[in-house]
Design a protein around this nucleic acid. Sequence first.
DNA 1: AAGAATTTGTCCGTATGTATC
DNA 2: AGATACATACGGACAAATTCT
Lengths: 223, 223
Amino acid sequence: MDVIEQYIISKGLKPGDPLPTEARLCEDLGVSRSSVREAFRQLQALDIVAVHQGRGTFVSDMSLRPLVKSLVIRASLGTDNFTSLKEVVEIREVLDVGLARKIVESMEGTRHEELHSITDVMIAKAERGESFPDEDIAFHRGLMQSVGNALVEQLMSAMWIIHMAVLPDLPAGDQTSMIATARAHRDMLLASEAGDVEGYEAAVDAHYAPLLRTLGNLPSQQN
Amino acid sequence: MDVIEQYIISKGLKPGDPLPTEARLCEDLGVSRSSVREAFRQLQALDIVAVHQGRGTFVSDMSLRPLVKSLVIRASLGTDNFTSLKEVVEIREVLDVGLARKIVESMEGTRHEELHSITDVMIAKAERGESFPDEDIAFHRGLMQSVGNALVEQLMSAMWIIHMAVLPDLPAGDQTSMIATARAHRDMLLASEAGDVEGYEAAVDAHYAPLLRTLGNLPSQQN
DNA sequence: AAGAATTTGTCCGTATGTATC
DNA sequence: AGATACATACGGACAAATTCT
């Protein structure tokens, strides 16, 4: 495994570049095919390489999918499922709050039509009693994009995916909370465009409040 | 792999619990040793299971070590190494800023002697021109502990380990920056104990300023 | 369009190193 | 010290998928 890693780094390979075949590596490294395959499997699990039957093995894009898988399982195993989920939601909130200044700084004075239409759809759906997971993730992704940090973006998306994987159904609970959540999104957008950091932080609070209240009160459940 | 995951989840196994032996799984699932081993290798890479020769395979603690490995390689491959590293440092900063209110809230009115002695050592070392990586990680870990979110703690530690793995040497650069960084740590602590959120945020800024300046100005380098 | 070549997926059998009792 | 249980490693064979001729 380490040898292959060093190979990728030393050759400066980029995602998509092909790696030597299993047979080739057996010769070069003087090990059996099983060993090469087990090494590739580990790198595959980390999304460092991608293996395709009949084609070969390639450098992958090293996404945060492994993190998601690991944390989803972890959340499914905690004494009560909601402590783990609460930690994930808190990270989401910490990222939103921690990026407040950067986001407001880069959004101030602009107007993002696509984000506005997303929040409009959110509020409309909430008033009809529908949930809006797709709009939710799209909104947060859009906000994060403005800071120009790919890792932050992926981390936020990862936490959101974990969130939905552990608790697929309700994003908030009753319709009152859903409408409040939808409006909080709009308030976040408006505050950022207005350059109002405090307003943005308050909206983030309002955004997570109903969810955290639900998680705090909910009893434990077995899976 | 999925079958084993489901096995862990359905049986509600906790870290340390033993899994069936490879031979056993071969029979139960009707597959060969190689397949079982390759599945275990993937789960091992994700730190979901731990394999011990001569003893067996056990549920592991699902740490964020896989994330570290993945991001270290990613950072070693970016067009210039410092864009990746800068993203990691920015996440550290976002976590510190995003946790400001929670930290100050839980620290206000208390006095953490061990954290004070850490910052004292930091400042002393900085004035002697020595770096202080151990004290640095210990300090941030100690602060994070007060919020009672294990995931946040691990995420912060992971980012710090990546940081040091990619840039093992200088934490800041010249001695002036090092002293400023050391003092910023003390200011973070004092502000949190005084319940001063704005002061805490300012100290966080001062803490990361020299580092981000260095990263922003440094030219790219090959590994 | 058919067949050959390449490459990964799976399986089997055997021998070896390691930990536990 | 010996026996047992278990993972590690190797080599060979065939199947399945993809690509090339």
